[in-house]
Design a protein around this nucleic acid. Sequence first.
DNA 1: CGTGTCATGTAATCAGTTACATGATTCA
DNA 2: TGAATCATGTAACTGATTACATGACACG
Lengths: 189, 189
Amino acid sequence: MKNSKTIFALLGWLSTQPHSGYELKNLTERYVGEFWYGSFGQIYPLLRQMLEEGLVTMHEERDTGHPPRKVYTITGAGRAAFERWMQEPPEEDLFRSELLLKLFFGHLAKPGALVEQVRAALDSARAKLTYYERLHAMLSEQYAGTPDLPFMLITLDRGMIVNRGYVEWAERTLETLKGIHPQEVRDEP
Amino acid sequence: MKNSKTIFALLGWLSTQPHSGYELKNLTERYVGEFWYGSFGQIYPLLRQMLEEGLVTMHEERDTGHPPRKVYTITGAGRAAFERWMQEPPEEDLFRSELLLKLFFGHLAKPGALVEQVRAALDSARAKLTYYERLHAMLSEQYAGTPDLPFMLITLDRGMIVNRGYVEWAERTLETLKGIHPQEVRDEP
DNA sequence: CGTGTCATGTAATCAGTTACATGATTCA
DNA sequence: TGAATCATGTAACTGATTACATGACACG
C-alpha cells in the first residue's frame, strides 16, 4: 500500500485541521466521493503508515465513546509531501463502464435488452444533475467568501457538465435504439 | 479471478468469430479501450478458466509462428452466458480523477501550480475529440450497412459528448483560476 | 427495543498490473 | 543491426474491498 494517492486526500483534509480516521473517511465520501474513494479497510492502515513515515502525529481522545478516538495532525513533513504532490502531473483519469461495453456488443443482444439499462442510466444522470444543482446553491451560500469555495465549485462544475452530456447522450441513444427495433421500444404506457 | 466481467468482453468478440488470446487483447484495446481493459496477464489466465468452464473450446494452430497460436471458439454455454449477462443490469460506471482531487484542495496549492495540469487536460481532451471525429467518419464508411455500426457509434458518441463537456469545463476552469490569481496565469507568450 | 451513528481495527480475498522468460519473423 | 510485431505464459506484487469482531450511546 506504499503508493496510494489516497494519502494525499487525507493530508488535504488534515491541512486545515486535525481529524480522526472515521471523520476522514466520511469527509472523503461526502465531498470527493464522486471522483475519489477509500474504505475504512484502506484508510486505517494508511494512517498507521503515515504515522510511521512522520507525515502525521497522533493523539488519543478517550472521553465517552469507547474505542478511543485517534486524532491525527499533519506535520511539516506532511505539508511538504502534500505540496510536492500538488506540483506533480496527475495520473490519467480512470473510467470504466460496463454499460458501454454492453452497448458496443449491442447487435448481439435480444432486441430491447439494453433499453431498460439505458433508461436507468438516464434516470440516474438526471437525478445527479438536480442533486448537483441544489448542492451548488447550498455550498455557494454556506461557504460564501471562503477561499476553498471556488475550488469546490470547479469540481462540482465538472460533475454538472459531464452529467448534462450524459443525459443528452442517453436520450439520443434511446432514440437510436428505437430506430433499430421500432416495435420493442415503447414510451411508458 | 472468478468474477471478472472481462470474460464477457472476450465472449463478445468470440460471438462473431474465433480468435487467439493475442488478438482478443488487441481488439479490446483498440475498440473498447476507452471504457474497458484487460492486460495479457489477465486475459491468458481468463481464457484457461473459460475453457475449464466450457464457455469456449480451443484448438492449436502450429504453422510458422513459434508459440503455437491457440484459437478459441465460443460454445453454446458461452453464448448462453453472454446473453444472460446482456440482460443483467450493469455495474455503475467507475470514475476516478487525481486532477479533480487536486483541484478540490486547490486553495492549499501555490498559486499557479494547477494551471499547467488543467491546460494539459484541456489539450488531451481536444486531441481526443478530433481523433473521435476522424474515427467516426472512418467507421461510418468502413462498416457502412453492417448491424454493429450503430452500436459502435453509440459508444463513440458518448466519448465525443463527454469530451466536448470536458473541453468546455477546462476552458472555464482556466478562466476561474485566472480570476483567483490574476498575475500567475498568463496567455502563452 | 431495534436501528443508526460513532469508532477502531484485522484477515481473507480479489481483480488486476508489472516484470520476466522465450523466441521467430519482418521491416527499416 | 536493431526495433516492432507476433505469440504464449507465469510469479510476484499491489491496491483495494469485504466481512468480521467489538461495543457504547442516542433517537424514535
